[in-house]
Amino acid sequence: AIERGSKVKILRKESYWYGDVGTVASIDKSGIIYPVIVRFNKVNYNGFSGSAGGLNTNNFAEHELEVV
């Protein structure tokens, strides 16, 4: 089962992080479509409006993740 702290591989082909491994930061139990927040070591794009980097978290559905 996917739980907080799990290392997961991203299976969503259109994702910037496809094939990468991230760490589960949290799981939303409220029934939303993409409840699993995954944190990565790298950012997906340069930040804007003065922020240092881009996003390094993204929401995924459990079926888009594979525990490694």
Rank of each mutant, 00 (worst) to 15 (best):
G5S: 03
S51Y: 06
G5C: 14
K13I: 13
F60G: 00
G22V: 05
K9A: 03
V8H: 01
V36S: 00
A25W: 13
I27S: 01
F48M: 13
D28K: 05
K7R: 12
V68R: 03
S15Q: 01
G53E: 14
R39D: 04
H63N: 07
V68I: 11
I32K: 11
I32Y: 08
V67C: 04
V8T: 02
G53D: 13
N59E: 07
V36C: 04
N44V: 10
A25C: 15
E62A: 12
F40Y: 02
K7A: 07
I27P: 01
N44M: 14
V67S: 04
F48S: 14
N41R: 12
G50L: 06
R39C: 15
S49D: 15
I10W: 02
V8D: 00
L11A: 02
N44R: 10
V24D: 00
F48T: 14
S15W: 04
D20M: 13
K7S: 08
K13M: 08
A1W: 11
V21N: 02
G53R: 04
R39F: 14
S49I: 11
E64S: 02
E62M: 14
Y45N: 15
N58V: 10
G53C: 15
A1C: 14
G53N: 09
F60H: 02
F48V: 14
G54M: 07
E14N: 12
I33P: 14
V36K: 00
G50W: 06
N44H: 13
I33K: 13
L65Y: 01
R12E: 01
I2H: 03
K7T: 08
N46H: 12
Y18T: 03
N46A: 06
E14W: 11
V38T: 00
G50P: 11
Y18E: 02
H63Q: 06
V43K: 10
S6F: 13
S30Y: 06
K42D: 09
G53M: 10
V38A: 00
I37Y: 09
G19Y: 04
I27R: 02
Y34D: 06
D20L: 14
G54K: 05
E14P: 05
F48H: 11
G54W: 10
D20T: 10
I10V: 12
N41P: 07
E64W: 04
D28N: 07
E64A: 02
A61E: 05
Y34M: 08
G47T: 07
G50H: 09
E14A: 10
N58F: 12
N44I: 13
T23A: 04
A1Y: 10
I37C: 15
L11V: 03
Y18F: 12
H63D: 10
K7Y: 13
K29V: 11
V43D: 13
N41H: 11
E66N: 03
N46K: 05
F40I: 03
V68D: 03
A61D: 04
A52H: 09
I27D: 00
P35M: 15
G31L: 12
I2T: 02
S26D: 13
T23P: 01
E3V: 13
V8M: 01
F60A: 01
V24I: 04
N44P: 10
G47I: 05
A25G: 04
N44D: 15
F48K: 06
E62Y: 15
L11D: 00
I27V: 08
R39T: 11
N46S: 08
R4T: 11
N44S: 11
V24G: 00
I32T: 13
K13N: 05
Y18C: 05
I27A: 01
H63G: 04
Y16L: 06
L11Y: 03
S6I: 09
K9N: 03
E3G: 11
N59V: 06
L55W: 09
G5E: 02
R4M: 09
I2W: 03
V8A: 01
V43G: 08
E3A: 14
G19S: 04
I27L: 06
F40D: 00
D20W: 11
I2C: 13
L11H: 04
G31R: 06
S49N: 10
R39I: 13
T57K: 06
E66D: 04
I32C: 14
K13Q: 10
F48D: 15
G53F: 07
I32R: 08
T57Y: 14
G53T: 12
G19T: 04
A61W: 06
I10A: 02
N44L: 14
E3N: 10
T23G: 01
I10K: 01
E62R: 10
S30G: 09
R39S: 08
V38C: 04
F60V: 01
N44A: 09
D28G: 05
K42A: 06
I37S: 09
R4G: 05
T23W: 09
E3R: 14
L11C: 08
F60I: 02
G19N: 09
T23N: 02
V43Q: 07
Y34T: 05
P35A: 13
K7H: 12
D20P: 02
G47V: 05
